[in-house]
Amino acid sequence: MNTASSESLPNGVSDKRLVLSVRDARKAYGFVTALAGASLDLHEGEIVALLGDNGAGKSTLIKAITGIVTLDSGAIELDSRPLRLRSPADARASGIETVFQDLAVFDNLTVSDNFLIGREQTWPRWLGPLGFLSAGQEQKQWREHASALSVSHVSPSQEIGLMSGGQRQAVAVARAVAFARRVVILDEPTAALGVRESDEILTMVRRLPERGLSVIIVSHNMDHVVRVADRAVVMRQGRSVGEMTVRQGVQKDLVAMIMGVT
């Protein structure tokens, strides 16, 4: 059912409004050049797979869009307005949410604690972080989002450290999706998961455009890319070297482009 949407991908996807655009991004760490003029476009409701071998510059590009890394030069625009990111908080405030594979959840907190962390409502307000939390209110917030994000089978009061990798990832993705307004970035969301759990995450990702979100997904699994992505952008040596509309059966072409053999 997911492949159907990539088969029927309209060529007109690029006619849609541009949400995020990165132009000529450059970044060097000392003598090592991580980005040497990378560019990336993301349209309204589009799922773009960002591909490339290790060291191609994918994660630096993502970190730049997330506010973890500051570019040496180049421009990032969100909704045609220049975006200046000095911290992950800036990116979040602009409506960009990211799920990193290894920076996902607090094992010692419950599902709903993880879901709301940093965004808890407290009373009385003037006490700030010393204000009280409302357990009932928080469970309600979780339930509202959970059903829409197909994680409703997860109990909100369960400690997340005792859950399987897929369930944890689902909660992390749900958190990003619930609070993102424009863009969701997923870094290897299925890397550590079994077949069925990968399946559930991909289904969840495929539905994000319905919520008006655009998605950038990094993955090394070409089958997963073909299942969810509309378009693939390939990076090599810090540059974007090509892109391709994703259809069933392009796996080999994608791998060739990543390796640089034509």
């Binding site: 973890i68 911290s87 992950p88 908080a89 979040r92 990193f100 920076l103 996902a104 959840v105 607090f106 094992d107 010692n108 907190l109 604690d113 962390i117 940093g118 808890e120 407290t122 700030g128 972080p129 010393l130 204000g131 009280f132 939390l133």
Partner: peptide, 27 residues
């Protein structure tokens, strides 16, 4: 009360659970 019912308390547990994620989340 402070640890179990306030935002400060939950954040303290969070920082102990994973300081890196805590910083990344913006605590």
């Amino acid at each position: 009360l402070m640890l179990r019912r306030t935002q400060w308390g939950r954040w303290l547990y969070a920082v102990g659970g994973n300081p890196d994620v805590a910083q990344w989340v913006g605590l």
